[in-house]
Design a protein around this nucleic acid. Structure first.
Length: 740
DNA sequence: GTGAGTCCCGTTTTT
DNA sequence: CGGGACTCAC
């Protein structure tokens, strides 16, 4: 047991061995957060302070849950591993799903209820609007989806929403309709999983008491990412901190809270500290990832935020190399430089997979990909379609869902005419009318239809019924296989020109089913359970969308947004596009809250790097089909000068633009690369010595970049982007502009 | 019911 | 500029 605790630093040790009490662990980037979490659980179990079934550990992603479990089983002796099954480890949504399946009757749900992912939910909302004849210009489906999810995450059912205007009153009406549609179809969206579970626990005393007594220790990962409802959910399980209830052990980092836009509320950390009377907040500030310069930069940046809980990262490693800053003429030059630099790193022996290219928004990846591609460097982009979100997989799942639950109109609509079987928009409309008349699902309305539509639709219903009957005793993988053939999906893609990959994905779905069965540890002879197991598999598919198109194994440079880089680390990190408007993003610049979140994002980006950090920006950049001239990011200015090394030809920190420069700097090693970069702009126009792209100073508005010009002579006007002061047109003859 | 043509829009994303 | 959603004509 004692070897569990060796090699922990004093703060980690303190956190791990805390007596049973509510605790808040402020875990900085790279401070061994997961280690503390797993060791804490192992220590509690091994010292006999808690039975495995008294442990509840909550994470945000399936990946984190899996890692927790894997590291935990590596720590515990085998005898404990068997009982480790008694622990509940999973995501908020996964655990809610489990609770709702166990108590579906009390929660007012059929046992085989289906889960809508965001795409399914959007489709359901569109269908609803169409059925109610609502103008989707006035009520954009996406906006409505956001509204409904927002209310649910605030714990509000329609009747509890305060409708402050006509528009909202109307949206509440639609919220009501949406709820009854979901109930009729036996489907549950992500927010509903949470809210439904919360209400179940709140209203059903025996069930609440049962879980309150069962769980003795509740551990929460990434606590800064919890939303209001999730926090209330935790409070309920911990009986608001009353004596004898579970102890909450929350680990998080307020400086890495970057999901405010989807409801995460850092305020939960402060609230938790207050409401649970957390005496001493433990800070994990020793960083095991990065060199000193990188941490100093990160500390300096984040210091500009107000209202932090406070934390300063440090390391025992040396200062390391300076942070390299590069100023490029255009986005293309920036990309070229990055690729040159990568090639040099790889020549020096760094593995490609140890190198990351980070950017604020996905649109920026294009130039980088193009450059990498033409240089023949293998790379991998995160963020594409995920396995269970692929069209062909969605179709296959829709058939499977109809087997488990024919009232699922979303699934019905998706495949009723796919592959095409002559069921057109007219037939569907007639069917929808019938369904409305009989207040039933589309599937159940089919027998009420007469005429030709009735006949073809009845054939489809028969197909689904045959599928259900023929698969009732099949093991899951064979069940899936059978459906792929009998539905005609395989045939359809076999005849399609580009269908090969889709066919392979369909086969992969069978593998996924096989893996699911293996991991679930179900006996192969549990035949009569085929459809119950199917429902579990479908829930799994909704809750875990699968890998982000992983081509694991190959040694490739990693491209991703700063958001998706959270939690990862790399030997070398390139952060590109450090420009006002891009990073910080223009939509977030105006309000402090938004700007501070951008700064936390910057903090996350910087702390991903182990050894080398490269920061770059471009004077001009192609965005939305036009060239933009941005000021360099304020975040660059927040890094102390001593930590950086500017790789630009001109002096650091003097000008953002150089005139008539023809060659370019040296990569961090090797000689000068002679290249002729495109000049950002050189429209011949008499601007009294000024050029588009040039940095100028105005007495009132401060520094800005000239972004456009028109007229000449006495009429000449220039448009200048002053950053915070806005974008303005100024008459050259009147405005006093000085080259900066 | 499919395919070409057109229009619109444009952070970040997990479950 | 480029992708996605939508429309209109066969």
């Amino acid at each position: 047991m004692s070897d569990l605790l060796v090699n922990l630093n004093p703060e980690q040790l303190q956190a791990v061995t805390l007596p049973p009490q509510h605790a808040l662990i402020l875990a900085g980037a790279g401070s061994g957060k997961t280690r503390v979490l797993t060791t804490r659980i192992a220590w509690l179990v091994q010292t006999g302070q808690v039975d495995p079934q008294g442990v509840l550990a909550v994470t945000f992603t399936n990946k984190a849950a899996k890692e927790l479990l894997a590291r935990l089983s590596a720590m515990l002796p085998l005898s404990f591993n068997r009982s480790a099954r008694g622990m509940w480890i999973g995501t908020f949504h996964g655990l809610c799903n489990r609770l709702l399946r166990a108590h579906h009757r009390d929660a007012g749900l059929p046992q085989l209820f289906q889960i809508l992912d965001s795409g399914d939910q959007l489709a359901a909302i569109k269908r609803l609007l169409k059925a109610l004849n609502v103008d989707d210009e006035k009520f954009p489906p996406r906006e409505l989806q956001h509204f409904i999810n927002g209310q649910k995450e605030a714990g509000l059912r329609p009747h509890a929403v305060e409708a402050w205007d006509d528009y909202t009153r109307h949206r509440v009406e639609l919220y009501i309709e949406y709820e009854s549609q979901c109930q009729r179809e036996s489907v549950v969206d992500f927010a509903e999983l949470l809210l439904r579970t919360y209400e179940l626990l709140e209203r059903n005393e025996p069930i609440r008491k049962h879980y309150q007594q069962r769980f003795r220790h509740i551990l929460v990962d990434e606590f800064q990412d919890t939303n209001k409802l999730q926090y209330r959910w935790l409070k309920l399980l911990a009986d608001a901190g009353r004596d004898g209830a579970a102890k909450l052990f929350c680990v998080g980092d307020d400086d890495q809270s970057i999901y405010r836009f989807r409801g995460a509320d850092v305020g939960n950390m402060r609230d938790f500290e207050r409401e649970f009377h957390v005496g001493n907040v433990i800070r994990l500030e020793q960083n095991y990832r990065s060199h000193g310069n990188i941490l100093d930069a990160a500390n300096a940046i984040i210091r500009h935020n107000a209202g932090r809980l406070g934390k300063n990262l440090w390391t025992e490693r040396g200062a390391g190399e300076p942070i390299r800053v590069f100023e490029a003429c255009g986005d293309l030059d920036e990309a070229r430089w990055i690729v040159d630099e990568i090639q040099s790193l790889v020549r020096d022996g760094m593995s490609r997979s140890g190198i990351a290219l980070l950017y604020r928004s996905n649109a920026q990846s294009r130039v980088l990909e193009h450059q990498l591609f033409s240089s023949g460097i293998s790379y991998r982009v995160y963020g594409g379609l995920r396995f269970f979100e692929r069209q062909e997989i969605k179709h296959a799942l829709a058939y499977l869902r109809l087997i488990a639950n024919p009232d699922d109109d979303t699934a019905f609509s998706r495949v009723v005419n796919f592959p095409t079987r002559g069921i057109g928009a007219r037939s569907i409309e007639a069917l929808q009318d019938a369904a409305r008349t009989w207040n039933s699902s589309l599937y159940a309305a089919v027998p009420h239809l007469a005429g030709k539509p009735g006949t073809v639709l009845a054939q489809f219903v028969r197909l689904v019924e045959d599928l259900r009957r023929d698969t009732a005793k099949l093991p899951l993988p064979e069940l899936v296989d059978h459906v792929l053939d009998a539905s005609g999906l395989r045939n359809h893609f076999r005849n399609e020109k580009e269908g090969q990959e889709r066919l392979e994905n369909l086969d992969e779905l069978i593998n996924a089913a096989a893996n699911f069965v293996a991991e679930a540890g179900v006996q192969a002879d549990a035949q009569d359970m085929a459809h119950a197991l199917l429902a579990d598999f479908l829930a799994h598919a909704s809750l875990e969308a699968g890998e982000h198109q992983a081509e694991a194994g190959s040694d490739a440079v990693q491209l991703m947004t700063v958001h998706s880089s959270k939690g990862l680390e790399f030997d070398a990190v390139f952060l590109s596009g450090l420009e006002e408007g891009l990073f910080p993003h223009e939509n977030s610049i105006l309000e402090t809250e938004g700007l501070e979140e951008e700064r936390r994002l910057m903090y996350v980006a910087v702390t991903r790097a182990r050894q080398r950090l490269y920061l770059s920006f471009a004077q001009s950049r192609m965005l939305h089909g036009q060239t933009r001239y941005n000021l360099r990011s304020r975040f660059l200015e927040e890094i102390p000068e001593g930590l950086t090394k500017w790789l630009s030809p001109l002096n650091p920190r003097t000008s953002a633009v150089r005139s008539g420069f023809g060659g370019y700097y040296q990569p961090s090693r090797g000689g000068v690369v002679a290249k002729a970069p495109e000049q950002p702009v050189s429209r011949s126009r008499d601007l009294g010595g000024l050029r588009v792209g040039q940095l100028v100073t105005h007495a009132k508005f401060g520094q800005g970049v000239i972004v456009a010009a028109e007229g000449s002579g006495a009429d000449a006007r220039v448009q200048i982007n002053f950053g915070a002061a806005g974008v303005k047109w100024l008459m050259l003859a009147v405005a006093k502009l000085d080259p900066a």
